[in-house]
Design a protein around this nucleic acid. Structure first.
Lengths: 104, 104
DNA sequence: TGCAAATATGTCAGATGTGATATATAGTTA
DNA sequence: TAACTATATATCACATCTGACATATTTGCA
């Protein structure tokens, strides 16, 4: 966003900032969300590579298709625990998980 | 596994048994537990390095001393989310977290 | 030793995460 | 077009995780 534009918006009463600021997230909350997103991306990748349906992954996970869908769409009611379990259920290694986190 | 280790795990709420029983745990459950242990170890290390008390970490985390104690003792009612938030609250980088997981 | 700080343990009500189920919405193929 | 497969969304009862608090135990030091 251009500085001039932002100035005009602020003059008009809007507060302008980034998503983190807007949502009032602390740094560690923001970091956790970024990490989750990276791992979710990995879940989608691996599931694609293995040509698994959401139903098939749900079975490996002992969960349900709807929960896998929510997981992959980053629903806020999905824990980091479940995301990581999904990865391990597909046979992803600790190394792969660690690497994904390192680059998040 | 050493008897003392097993005792500690059971004290913390985990069920630990012989090889057969252990195989009853799904692979992803076992992998997740190993990963948690590694990250818990990192929490203790970092908190030591920064000379923080459990109370001080609890404040950074917006949590309580008792929960930090349970976290560090690997209580089964502590989520991966909380462990990772504790690390980020102490300023640990994604890279450090990823590295710890890679080696778990 | 005795005191104080740090850590551990127990409990609980409320918040959040869970699998299951039903149903809706694509996308695909006959 | 209909039938089928995959994914998305909504809801719910139940389980788990949470911070808070009280209290016990351990640790370190004067």
């Amino acid at each position: 966003m251009k500085k001039s534009k932002q100035k005009n918006l602020e003059k008009a009463g809007w507060r302008v900032g980034d998503a983190q600021e807007f949502l009032g997230l602390s740094d560690e909350e923001a970091a956790l969300i970024a990490m989750k997103q990276k791992l979710i991306q990995l879940v989608r990748e691996i599931r694609g590579d293995q040509s698994l349906t959401q139903v098939a992954l749900a079975e490996l996970l002992h969960s349900s298709q709807s929960r896998v869908a929510k997981l992959e769409n980053g629903s806020s009611d999905v824990s980091l625990d479940l995301i990581v379990r999904a990865l391990f259920a597909m046979g992803v290694s600790h190394q792969q998980v660690g690497k994904a986190i390192s680059s998040s």
